[in-house]
């Protein structure tokens, strides 16, 4: 199995076996029911659709209710697909829980980063800015953005100020510090994208998967 859906709870710290402090992100993971199986025959690829976080039936619209009724489940808020080798290993309506991460060393995590609003080039692209004095262009300015009459335009893709953040970010090779099966909590070393309550997609590290095959 490849992954699960989770929710960022926040950050904390714990002591490792050497007594050193390890910063950890706490993620509430699953349990996620299998809602739909997609096969090569029916959809052209093999995958399972997992759900996360139940909602009251009055909160869901009819298409959503119907989709979950087919799997004999109450409606859930989030749906995501995970590619698998053989979807027939899974049963519709059965739950996958955090147990799949036991014995796994590293995971990849995908989530929406925090939105930063409209930002200048120094924060957004790491430019160095200009000189404060001696006729500099100003301490946070981008400087020249191109050449002269030839080419007579700004080259496409030029890094300029603009909206920063709130983009889907993939972070690879995050180390699992602890798997708490009782409370469905996953402790990951370091930071993960997004603010509290961000929905995260947690998959077993890609390189590990290749090794398994």
């Amino acid at each position: 199995m490849l992954g699960l859906i989770g929710k960022k709870i926040g950050m904390s710290q714990i002591f490792d076996e050497n007594g050193l402090v390890v910063p950890v992100s706490v993620i509430k993971v699953g349990p996620c029911p299998v809602v739909l199986k997609k096969t090569e025959k029916s959809h052209g690829y093999n995958a399972v659709q997992l759900a996360f976080e139940t909602i009251r039936p009055t909160k869901a619209n009819l298409p959503k209710l119907g989709h979950f009724r087919k799997a004999n489940l109450p409606p859930y808020r989030h749906l995501q697909e995970f590619r698998v080798d053989d979807p027939n290993e899974f049963e519709i309506g059965s739950f996958l829980d955090i147990g799949i991460f036991e014995g796994v060393e590293k995971v990849d995590i995908t989530g929406k980063s925090k939105g930063k609003g409209f930002q200048g080039v120094m924060k957004r692209h790491g430019f160095h800015g200009g000189r404060k004095s001696h006729g500099g262009r100003g301490p946070r300015s981008p400087g020249s953005i191109g050449m002269a009459a030839y080419p007579g335009k700004v080259i496409k893709g030029k890094k300029l100020p603009g909206r920063m953040g709130h983009t889907t970010e993939h972070v690879k090779n995050l180390r699992i510090v602890d798997v708490d099966t009782e409370n469905n909590l996953l402790l990951i070393k370091g930071a993960v994208p997004g603010a509290r309550n961000t929905i995260l997609r947690i998959t077993v590290q890609q390189s590990t998967q290749k090794g398994l095959k």
Binding site: G10, I14, N183, L185
Partner: peptide, 12 residues
């Protein structure tokens, strides 16, 4: 925040 308290409580 209780979940975070719970995580750190085991360490104290």
């Amino acid at each position: 925040m209780d979940i975070l308290d719970q995580v750190s409580a085991g360490q104290q």
